[in-house]
Design a protein around this nucleic acid. Structure first.
Length: 142
DNA sequence: GCCAACGTTGGC
DNA sequence: GCCAACGTTGGC
């Protein structure tokens, strides 16, 4: 499976809402680079969900349940895609952006280097590092 | 095809 | 609320 990080503005669609609704259509992505990443997604891939805005933290894990398919508003032109996600679990402790920036193994991720990209790939290792930082009582630093 | 103007994102 | 970064648009 491949690993991803998806950004969302919690005021628009929060991970809590995904937990409540169990699954969602991840649509509305209107950026070519993000779209190209969406196109690479496959059923079974795993995605960390990041809240931008006030939270600025990775808050949960979701699973891709349906690969890319068209996403167009009525009357809209374009070649956009969406995927379907199912909530897996909230992280025991959200992993703040500041923590990610302070973690050497994560210094190369797009969340840090390409701050405006909303859909980005992660290596399995990066995914695991963030998951571990978000585990309850990880206690692996300080 | 260049580039200035403009709009949006998102951290601070 | 500000502004840097960056993407998009449109005039030439």
């Amino acid at each position: 499976v491949n690993h991803w990080l998806l950004k969302t503005e919690p005021g628009t669609y929060s991970f809590q809402r995904l937990l409540k609704e169990k699954s969602t259509h991840w649509n509305g992505v209107r950026n070519y680079q993000a779209r190209n990443h969406l196109r690479e997604m496959k059923k079974g891939d795993l995605a960390l969900i990041y809240h931008s805005g006030d939270d600025k933290a990775v808050v949960g894990v979701a699973e891709v349940t349906r690969g890319p398919y068209p996403d167009l508003e009525p009357g809209e032109e374009g070649d956009w895609v969406q995927v379907d996600l199912r909530a897996r679990r909230a992280l025991a402790a959200p992993v703040p952006l500041a923590r990610i920036k302070a973690t050497r193994e994560l210094s190369q991720i797009a969340l840090v280097k390409h701050t405006r990209l909303s859909v980005m790939p992660l290596t399995a290792k990066e995914f695991a590092v963030i998951e571990r930082l978000g585990a309850s009582g990880a206690g692996d630093e300080q």
